[in-house]
Design a protein around this nucleic acid. Structure first.
Lengths: 190, 190
DNA sequence: TTTAAATATTAAGCTGGTTTAAGAAATCTG
DNA sequence: CAGATTTCTTAAACCAGCTTAATATTTAAA
């Protein structure tokens, strides 16, 4: 049950069979089709989401017309609007499946209970947050360092699995480019 | 001793007088003048830094000429290159004081020992990382959402204390603008 | 298999923000 | 206080990447 999550946790902390039984008390599995929503703007983000299988995207609506993607989560990634989750505030974001997905959810209350009952999960999430923070800082560095063309090329070579699975216009949005410009770059570079 | 750090920790977890004695075993105070370095490119970032008083900036060198600032840390902020710290890899960054500062440092080894001896610190750092991640995500959102002019104006109204303490050209760098363009914006907007 | 919807391409014109270069003002240092 | 250094301003030329608008292609649904 939830093999990817269990394995992921065990990369960072000890988790015996009993701990697993505790863990699964607090976790819910949600099976979703393509384009289903886990969160919409205005709702409080009440859960952390772990992608067992599939792909999520997080986006907000720019000047009320354009979807601006800020994150993707493929298999074995956590996703949440942490501000909304922590402070119980309405979110500015949507979280939606990009493809058919199996998502594990843990709500605020279960999260706190789980941390009490399995203190090593405090360490696990500390490490997860720390790694997510490092990744976020790296993305910001690339946004500063690279031209948009370089940013796109870098993304293509660094994350070829995204190029396979995610429509081009979504990648454009994630990188802060227009789809038209990505078209131009593809023509130019291949 | 270290009143700001102690108070900061107590905002999130319990810390009795004995715990404080344990904590200070692992922490070092460094007093620095303006423009002193805590980290230089190529070195491994071996510590987490907490600003008791003062101001730090984190930057890297762009195409070998221009300093690109990615973070500031004022009083009560933690700063580190988490990638370098976690994985023991040479950093791309410099960390330098912007003004005379009192900085608390905790190195990798002490960090692990501290977490063993005071497990509630695992929770404290989980929350700190979570908040830093939320802040980083919010910055990325603004970078997507706002024009450079709006980004600058938003920063000025949201963080007036930065405008007081930090030279204008550093703020320009942090926001990804040229100092010349900031000059133009100031003329235009006041 | 047809129709509709979603995704991708092409090309011309335009603009927000950079680059370059020079000088002015403020702040340090002895 | 004087000179050196750091920080800030001004203005013109320039360009990476966007906008607009029309068409083409792929995918999904009926």
């Amino acid at each position: 049950m939830y093999p990817n999550l269990i394995q992921h946790i065990r990369k960072y902390v000890e988790l015996d069979e009993n701990d697993v039984l505790v863990l699964i008390k607090y976790i819910k599995l949600v099976s979703l089709k393509k384009k289903e929503f886990l969160l919409k703007e205005g709702q409080v983000c009440r859960s952390l989401y772990f992608v067992e299988k599939g792909c999520l995207r997080m986006f907000f609506i720019n000047d009320k017309t354009v979807e601006q993607i800020t994150q993707f989560a493929l298999d074995n990634w956590w996703m949440s609007d942490y501000f909304s989750f922590m402070d119980n505030k309405p979110s500015d974001y949507y979280i939606q499946t990009v493809e058919k997905s199996e998502v594990l959810t843990i709500d605020v209350f279960s999260f706190e209970e789980l941390l009490k009952e399995l203190p090593q999960m405090e360490r696990y999430f500390r490490i997860i947050m720390q790694r997510a923070l490092a990744a976020s800082q790296l993305k910001v560095k690339y946004m500063y360092e690279l031209t948009k063309e370089e940013f796109y090329m870098h993304f293509c070579t660094s994350f070829p699995e995204f190029i396979q699975r995610i429509p081009q216009y979504m990648i454009a949005s994630y990188l802060g480019l227009t789809p038209e410009y990505v078209s131009e770059l593809r023509k130019k570079n291949f």
